[in-house]
Design a protein around this nucleic acid. Sequence first.
DNA 1: CATATCACTTATAACGTTATAAATATCAGT
DNA 2: ACTGATATTTATAACGTTATAAGTGATATG
Lengths: 352, 352
Amino acid sequence: MPTKKPGNSSSQPTSKPTQKTIAEITGLAVTTVSRALKGDDKIAQATRLRVNKVADEIGYFPDPAAQRLRTGKTKIVSLILDPHNEILGFGNSLITGVAHRLASTDYHLNITPQFLQEDPMEPVEHIVRNRLADGLILSRTCPFDERVRFLRERNFPFATHGRTEFGYQHSYVDYDNEKFAYESVLRLMQKGRRRICIILPPAQFTFCQHLNYGYMRAIRQQGLDCHIPKGITLDSDMPEVFEWAQSIVQQENAPDGFICPGETSFLAIANAYRQAGKERGRDFDAVVKSSSTTLNQIDPHIDTINEDIQEAGLLLATNLLKAMEQPEGPFAQTIQNPEITFEPLKTNRTDR
Amino acid sequence: MPTKKPGNSSSQPTSKPTQKTIAEITGLAVTTVSRALKGDDKIAQATRLRVNKVADEIGYFPDPAAQRLRTGKTKIVSLILDPHNEILGFGNSLITGVAHRLASTDYHLNITPQFLQEDPMEPVEHIVRNRLADGLILSRTCPFDERVRFLRERNFPFATHGRTEFGYQHSYVDYDNEKFAYESVLRLMQKGRRRICIILPPAQFTFCQHLNYGYMRAIRQQGLDCHIPKGITLDSDMPEVFEWAQSIVQQENAPDGFICPGETSFLAIANAYRQAGKERGRDFDAVVKSSSTTLNQIDPHIDTINEDIQEAGLLLATNLLKAMEQPEGPFAQTIQNPEITFEPLKTNRTDR
DNA sequence: CATATCACTTATAACGTTATAAATATCAGT
DNA sequence: ACTGATATTTATAACGTTATAAGTGATATG
């Protein structure tokens, strides 16, 4: 016996309840049911209550496909995830944050992977052209990010993790990387370091500029030399960074202070230095941007500055929800403040 | 000027092309266009080619909402993600793997977060009842997993990361945790360790049993004592594990060998032991299940056994795709083999 | 009493697709 | 030319929802 018949639904208690089911039970028209469920003022309150009661009783849930077809609203937020080199779950934390924020709404979260070899515009264009989502979250912006320009031109709601340098506004969440870099230099100086090196992200990203500004500002202020490795970035994989660190550690003017905006680079560098007999705290120091407590478990004395990625996801979702309500703006923009929790310095640090 | 009018689409080159647009251009009926696009034999090949050519030219893309409403197929795979305690991007790797596999299909990936306080059945029931996806991927199964039973009863396609102990079959991908535990014991014995401790996952999960079997089998075979900490699991957070390790390290019969099926537990234990003056390699050893090269960058000499999570995602998606094609089975089942890459032992190991 | 106003309800059509059944054209065999 | 078979195309309806416009009564106004 087939489970579905084309017959009317009232004779089929097993099939999924629709507004039609409610209409048949209450004796109302489907239109009335639809509007009652929407809470329309024009429907008598008694009717609204009755409809909602029946809906609850029979376990009615609106068909997303039908709503989407009719309204054009997908109720989907798509997070375009760029699987860059990261260990401590950047993507995962971001997803968790976004998901938490969306859980109390009727939006669903969709992950669109950005494959490395692929044109970054491709998924964006595809989603916009075919209305595969109502809103988009992008990460790792460039100063004049093509994707941002495209989305702004079409008034498609989005929020980015990272700023741009366009003349117009858009929703974003960013981390104060300039402050991170600046404070890191000062901290390393406090520890007596003078040859301070920063690992930067690939140059095209906005946050590379920010890190660079903060670093350079501090370096100039303090009259230090600038140490920026060629060919090594935040996205270089660990063996690469390791090899590079091995190649410089024996040099006379090898850096004795490192600013690592990512945990992996630090681990690779520390490993290379350790193998060369250099000890962290005695021969070199580092300030590492960390997104979890893991690094401090590996070594509680490493100076870390925190970036709360899960919160970033939460904020991104919040800002995007606003942008979807009001596609013309104003746009919510949030800068996350670096959480600095350095240990107090020992007074006899210089002779250690 | 408004961009959309209710008028016919041929006069509106800006609006999204539909089958109707193609029908108007080719002079065919919409039905014919639909079937031609599907590659139906009953449509003349010349027509099929012509329709496809026009579709390409005008950039036709089928409306997922309409297809979904009409066919009931969502073309969505939902991954239910349990944000358990993990550092090195388990969720992220799994997503990446699944996404890669789905990229060549017309399925989209949807992430449904499983919040800790929430009933695990809730998202599953919701998705099945309201047909929010065509297939489901679950992680961390229990031997008699409610979710699995529910899905099997309704013939809803799914694949799990982890086995169950039901009498019936279903698609899964799992890791040979028994072998992992067994080989780990042997390795630690080779290194001269006799008080070998294993950190187990929470007892309700199937893979806890597997780890336990492997461990106990080796322990008995070798005539060792069993060391399983009470109150500490794979999901305990790092400070908890750290404290526990601190509390045991000074005991006379403190473990000198650890089997860690997760990186975090190892880091916390190693940290506590280090602080107590114990050195890895000299005073204790560990075998750690690792899903990336990160740990070996922290210390290349740590014995690790690999679990390729991204591959697991790929396999899960592959197996699920099969299950969606044939909901009655047979079900693809894959066991991932532990990748063991121990360094050869030094011959003078006993006196180190 | 006719009509305007209000509060509420409803019929109709449409979103874009596809399953079903029906229709048309083509052709071979008589 | 008629029949039947085959190949190809088409009309119709339906999936479940909602926007639009139209329809009820009931009450108030002139």
